[in-house]
Design a protein around this nucleic acid. Structure first.
Lengths: 250, 250
DNA sequence: CGGGTATTTGACGACTGTCAACGCCAGTGG
DNA sequence: CCACTGGCGTTGACAGTCGTCAAATACCCG
């Protein structure tokens, strides 16, 4: 199915997208929301609203756009034959979602809104033109890809070589860090709209085991989890446990 | 440590790099070796020789170059505190290696030559200039990143949600596919210079267990492994087992 | 208030890891 | 030529983390 059809069949508010990292050309500028609020450079885009649990596209879709999340959480995941599911990436505000750069190639994964989501869609055709006319844009795009790759590779290390406890601690710290960068705060608690099942699908465990680990972490006094909210009770201990290396953003 | 120092301290042959995917601007052109043999566009580069087992850079290095593998196998991996190791990516001929786009940020992972390797090094500074003057280059770069991301995300699904047997079957098929694309052959056997330990570090298992699975696959008549050589005895059964989806290169 | 979803808990089993030992092969040096 | 050495592959016994199954509880939304 064609993903653009999927779009227009859903409630959507089209306005100008005034918050978008693609407008920033400075090398390795951190992608905070305040930084995002700058001037548009004339790149065509549509801002869309996607309600929670709806799909941005699915694995077989041929997508003609590159997306930038403006608000909300999006999970990118793959379904396996046996019913299992692996969340490959969690996209937050300011993150790029690029199912493919070739509209003939299907996305191979699903993109689903966890919360209500606002995104900007950039038609690939316009993007290609913009890249040719605006070199800063292409450099920015490379940086975004690079940052994505880094997270992706850390995710691989996390899933491949760490215990359940370490994996979950790491995921929580990473998400916490990313949320803080975006809100420019350093609260010890954040909104965490993921279910335990989604966390399990992210780190490659079963929801039952995720629950066991959460209890452990709670009993050790490291975290507290109320509904949709995560409190880091002892962040240093958690960092130590997870072998987490907060990225030094220069 | 600065990675350029690491370079010049090693045996290296400096010549013009005449084989490099960055010279190709057509959208989603497959990266085969024959395609690589085209005309250079004036991007500065050094071709270096790295003998097997030597490091291109290590986790703490600040790297000032972007690399393109021309010949040989390179593993990118992270070391963990407890001595474990996770191979995040295997780079073959035509693949990009971009430890960072900011020379101030350390690589966070090691890049080690598995076989003798020839690579091209593009200084980041020159690359940035080239991206600004040559828009086709930036589009090509984005495509390369995109392809990398796809492999990386599949790797995550593989490690996170598949059994040992499925993981190994998948890895073998992926490597086989990538080698075939590059050699433009479809032999049922390929050179596979990885040790069982390296395969284990790639799919997140122990070398002992990798060995057990190899025996299983051998006894099922699916593969044969002699020294440094993999023979696919029943590729379809292997594809079925691994839930492998060969990428449709358009 | 009621139905569905998410969380929690226990018992049990299995896949994979750990430990230990041996064999094979290539390179090295006497 | 042969003993020696180190790396890699192979195998077995055992242990443990994590998955599976089942069920009860808590929570949300209509």
């Amino acid at each position: 199915m064609d993903a653009s059809a999927r779009f227009v069949s859903r409630p959507l508010h089209v306005t100008d997208c005034v918050h978008c990292p693609l407008r920033h050309s400075t090398l390795l500028e951190p992608l905070t929301l305040s930084k995002l609020k700058e001037v548009h450079q004339g790149l065509h885009s549509l801002q869309c609203f996607i309600p929670a649990k709806q799909y941005l596209y699915t694995a077989t879709d041929r997508v003609h756009d590159l997306f930038v999340v403006y608000r909300g959480w999006v999970i990118l995941y793959q379904d396996l034959k046996d019913g299992a599911r692996q969340i490959q990436r969690i996209a937050l505000a300011g993150d790029l979602i690029t199912p493919s750069l070739d509209p003939k190639v299907p996305a191979m994964h699903n993109a689903q809104a966890v919360t209500d989501v606002q995104i900007c869609a950039f038609p690939l055709h316009d993007l290609t033109r913009a890249l040719q006319s605006t070199p800063e844009l292409s450099i920015k795009l490379s940086q975004l890809y690079q940052e994505q790759m880094r997270l992706c590779q850390e995710h691989i290390t996390n899933i491949g070589r760490k215990s359940a406890e370490e994996r979950i601690a790491y995921l929580l710290l990473e998400l916490c860090n990313r949320v803080r960068q975006r809100t420019e705060t350093s609260d010890e608690s954040i909104e965490l709209p993921l279910t335990q099942e989604q966390i399990a699908d992210c780190v490659g465990l079963t929801p039952i085991h995720v629950n066991r680990i959460f209890r452990q972490l709670r009993e050790k006094g490291l975290i507290e989890m109320t509904r949709r909210r995560l409190v880091m009770r002892n962040e240093n201990a958690l960092i130590d446990l997870a072998q987490f290396e907060p990225q030094v953003v220069v």
